[in-house]
Simulated scan of single mutants.
Amino acid sequence: MSGETVLILGATSAIAERFARLRAADGDRLLLVGRDAGRLDAIATDLKARGADPATATLALDLAAPAEGFAAAFAAMTAALGGHVDVVLVAYGQLGDAAVTTADADPAAVVDLLTVNMTSACAWASVAAAHMERRGRGTIAAIGSVAGDRGRRSNYVYGAAKGGLALFMEGLAHRFAGTAVRVVTVKPGFVDTPMTAGMAKGGPLWATPDAVAADIDRAIAKGRPVLYTPWFWRIIMTIIRALPRPIFNRMKI
């Protein structure tokens, strides 16, 4: 995998930054995309010190609504990486707040949360798929969530967005089955990152960004279509999905 070109959308997220460090150690050429130009530049400088290709670069962009459109923006990113992309990681997202799931939730806030977490992410995966289909190879990975496996009262808008993204990625994987284009859906559980700053943390269910990033790196290398990280979330979510609705409805989750 050494010397690949890697596009990271949402590169300032904790998980994405740790993933980028792993790819830097392989000497990869990275393009880091996000909204905070200063933070992106600082990360790029650090990655080059860790072994990333000197051509590693940054691009400040609103990923949920690129002004030039998704296809044109992706074409510019491809050009910045030398004309081709080996790996795309869609790593941005927004958890939202409890008000989005109340009876008087602002519909605009609901739409914004769905746009950030699902529709824009699907659009990036789609344009990446078109590029890789032309090349005949490559990997598209997107970070979803175990929250997308079953709708829960506490975060069903976020969960619906991540569930929709997972279904889109599943269809994309089916489309490319038997080819050299790989599609990886990542489903983390609780991860200690700034996005979860408002949640009580600690205990065996919580993972570090480093551990999740390492799992993602291995899943991409192996072309695993679905990654639950840490691994035990696959078991937990299998149980939760199997619960009869009367029992599930009594749970305060």
Rank of each mutant, 00 (worst) to 15 (best):
Q94I: 00
A108C: 02
A125F: 01
V111S: 08
V110P: 02
A141W: 08
A11K: 02
G148Q: 07
A64N: 11
E17S: 14
P246C: 06
L30M: 14
Y156L: 11
T229H: 09
V157K: 06
R35T: 01
R218N: 04
A11W: 02
F176Y: 15
D36P: 01
M237C: 02
I143E: 03
A79D: 11
L47G: 03
A173Q: 13
L30P: 05
L81A: 00
G136H: 12
I15A: 02
A24Q: 06
V116A: 09
S120Q: 00
C122Y: 01
A73I: 01
I143R: 09
I143Q: 07
H131N: 11
I240K: 04
A98I: 06
I236E: 00
L172Y: 09
R150F: 08
I235K: 00
L61M: 15
A57K: 02
A108G: 10
F74Y: 15
A211V: 10
V127N: 06
L22D: 09
A129T: 12
K222F: 10
G164Y: 12
I240R: 03
A221E: 14
T5G: 01
P225V: 09
A20M: 10
L30E: 01
T56I: 06
M77Q: 14
R153K: 14
G83K: 11
A141R: 06
K222G: 00
T102P: 01
S126D: 15
A121S: 15
L95C: 00
A211M: 09
I253E: 02
D97S: 13
N117Q: 06
R39I: 02
F168V: 04
T238L: 14
R137M: 08
A121F: 11
L165T: 04
D53M: 03
A79K: 08
M132K: 12
Y158N: 03
Y228P: 00
V33F: 01
D53T: 01
G51I: 10
A75H: 08
R245S: 09
K48H: 04
A207R: 03
D97R: 11
F70T: 07
R175L: 14
H174G: 08
R245N: 06
A123V: 03
A219C: 06
G151F: 08
A71Q: 13
A161T: 07
N117E: 03
T58N: 00
V90R: 03
M251H: 02
A147E: 03
F19S: 02
A37Y: 01
M195G: 01
V181G: 10
A57E: 05
A214Y: 12
A109K: 13
E4N: 06
W231H: 08
E17D: 13
D97W: 05
V110Y: 04
W124A: 03
D217Y: 13
D104Q: 13
M169H: 05
A67S: 14
K48E: 04
R245V: 11
G159S: 10
D217F: 13
T229Y: 09
G144E: 04
I43E: 06
D112H: 12
D26Q: 15
V127C: 07
V191M: 07
E68C: 05
A200H: 14
F70Y: 15
V100K: 03
A211I: 04
A99F: 02
E133R: 15
A242C: 12
L40F: 12
A65Q: 13
A72L: 13
L47W: 08
V87M: 02
